[in-house]
Design a binder for these strands. Structure first.
Lengths: 199, 199
DNA sequence: GTCTATAGTGCGATAGAC
DNA sequence: GTCTATCGCACTATAGAC
């Protein structure tokens, strides 16, 4: 269902509601169709029925329209670390956090994730933004581990470990023909990493 | 070999030679002085005695002027992996690669690295570019490990391990009051990471 | 080397909700 | 009256096209 199908009371509203959702939907459609670079902000705004200026009120820049799932992912990760048992070993907490994150990527999201990844992979600027989001996530995780009493650089290294496993497992999850669940791929990658570092 | 190494005969040159070096020097000075955002490309070009157009012929975009050490770093990392003994364990190769990289950061470079890090830290766009460079480095490392016969996802996980240790050790190296050498910090971080993942 | 499209900012005006 | 979302317009800098 698209935003346009929402029933609302026209008599009280000065503008169509839900401008942010309309902008995101319009952007995704236009990017998938004509490519990220060839799609202008003016075009997105026009499609969503607002002005360019309104686009920039909802999104700090053109790239940001593709990255608003970030908050939920970070909450899942950090929430799991914060909620974990106080004397659990770091890698146990990492595994719990990865399970919490994996819940956000059920099988039915895989097709969408692949399409979105295609758009991002085709544009270096979007890759940069994706990496910044992962770095922000890493920083938030390191904070959470420090609040659990881990010192530096252990807190940072643990946070990086979690995000690297997530990153590598995600790349596998969206690769062609891959069937395994995201949670399974995370567990498998964690085990592989343990083997590598133990050598 | 880069353009910087070319020997010019000044008598034959229509322009002052070494425009790229002058542009980089001008940019660093102006960024440190007035901040990255408030410094325009026009200003950098004027200071270096060339036109704006010339700036963009030497650097793909405004940010790139801060990131040309990248090639040497990547060569050090990848070269060490490629040159390593064929049956050395992955973590042994990682340690060798980190030693090769550490050679690029002698004590006398620390002050400069701190100043540059301050500029980058103050601007999200520059952080994005730095992260993209690290990701490119990771990809190149993963390739080198695959050429050594490592399968996926082990090759990627090993490459990420090396870059994470580098990244965390670098952050420590430029932190205030830090005295230890970059190589020592790498070794120490590697050991910490081993302890974390073994838990 | 010039020209121009596009991203992104600053600010005042407007109109409805509360 | 205040708050919030929008418009509208003028403006700058980057970056790419020609």
């Amino acid at each position: 269902m698209s935003v346009h199908d929402i029933t609302y009371d026209v008599r009280m509203a000065r503008w169509e509601p839900d401008a942010q959702n309309r902008l995101r939907d319009a952007a995704l459609t236009l990017f998938a169709d004509g490519g990220y670079e060839r799609t202008t902000v003016a075009e997105i705004a026009r499609t969503a029925g607002v002005t360019e200026r309104t686009f920039f009120r909802h999104f700090a820049d053109k790239r940001e329209v593709l990255f608003d799932g970030q908050a939920r992912l970070q909450d899942a990760f950090v929430g799991a670390v914060t909620a974990a048992d106080g004397d659990a070993a770091p890698m146990t907490v990492v595994a719990t956090a990865l399970d919490a994150a994996a819940a956000l990527f059920p099988p039915e999201r895989r097709a969408f994730a692949r399409q979105r990844a295609g758009i991002v992979a085709a544009n270096p600027g979007l890759q940069e933004r994706e990496l910044l989001k992962l770095a922000t996530l890493t920083d938030a995780m390191a904070d959470a581990f420090r609040r659990r009493g881990l010192a530096e650089p252990t807190a940072s290294l643990t946070a990086h470990t979690a995000v690297v496993v997530f990153h590598v497992a995600f790349a596998q999850w969206i690769s062609p023909d891959e069937q395994r669940s995201f949670a399974d791929l995370c567990r498998s990658a964690t085990e592989d990493l343990r083997t590598v570092t133990a050598s």
